[in-house]
Write a protein that binds this DNA or RNA. Structure first.
Lengths: 150, 150
DNA sequence: GCCCTATTTAGAATAGTTCTTGATCTAAAT
DNA sequence: ATTTAGATCAAGAACTATTCTAAATAGGGC
């Protein structure tokens, strides 16, 4: 599977994206996250992989980069309960499903032409800028999780 | 506003609820949370109020009680990003809205006859046992937040 | 190349939460 | 009433994820 790094590196290497520089460290952090695909790694996990590509990088920098990239809207932070924050490069509107059985985090896509906020009765005049939807249960995808169902 | 403590104290004081004892401390923690209504206090905030009713109570006990009550399904834990966990005694299916302007947390009810998961394309065979929906934006409810809108 | 500022590094500090230990309480059995 | 076993509590230590701090470094504009 080719690494999905082009989106960002072509358009922003050594240039600005939203007023920020795409530094080597930020590029590495983004690349690592994109390479991990749908795995939703934590900062510590990203740090391990980033260190392979750039041994001098520090954990604080990984945190800084993740914050910068999140602020720039290039990646998303995913918080499930109070566990360590996870990150993903999938920017389509989607929810997260944590499987109690296999302990993985899955992306759940929005149904065709559905609107994530549509089932909620929001007060008039309110404006939603961000939405995080986290579900927990049994994914039913892997054999073990299928048998787990009562 | 009368304190909404009866639900639990009548049925469970000194008795079991789900195999657990409703101890004085658990009762106090529940009462404090219920009395705070829709304010979504943190453990530390609950601790302050609980100490007024029972000066000997400790923070660790507040944490223990909150965990126990959450596990028993009597209250809900609400996590928004990585901020301190908040708690609420409102058990109806609802989402949370954090207002960036007034920094309050509001309950958002489900629309009539709507299903919270209905907009998401869940994999076949999956089973959702819990769902947390957190929105962030401007509530538009108080005057300041109304003027905040562009 | 030099200067200015943004960024990085490493480690200390912090906040929220969990863990540990011994004390206390409760319910049930004696 | 006493004993016993197990659950719960209090206090503080420990832990974890994250943020902060200060000094070093890097990169773009001149």
């Amino acid at each position: 599977m080719a690494e999905k790094t082009l989106d960002i590196s072509i358009s922003t290497t050594a240039e600005d994206f939203g007023g920020l520089r795409m530094t080597k460290q930020r590029q590495v952090v983004y690349d690592v996250l994109a390479a991990l695909g749908r795995e939703h790694p934590t900062a510590a996990e990203i740090f391990v992989d980033a260190k392979e590509r750039m041994p001098s990088i520090s954990l604080a920098t990984v945190y800084n980069c993740l914050e910068t990239l999140t602020g720039a809207g290039v990646i998303r932070q995913v918080c499930i309960d109070r566990a360590a924050a996870r990150y993903c490069a999938n920017l389509t509107p989607h929810a997260h499903f944590y499987c109690d059985c296999c302990e993985k985090v899955f992306d759940i896509e929005l149904k065709d032409s559905a609107e994530a906020t549509s089932v909620w009765s929001l007060p008039k005049g309110s404006k939603v800028t961000e939405m995080q939807v986290a579900m927990r249960g049994i994914c039913g995808l892997c054999p073990r999780c299928r048998s787990e169902e009562s």
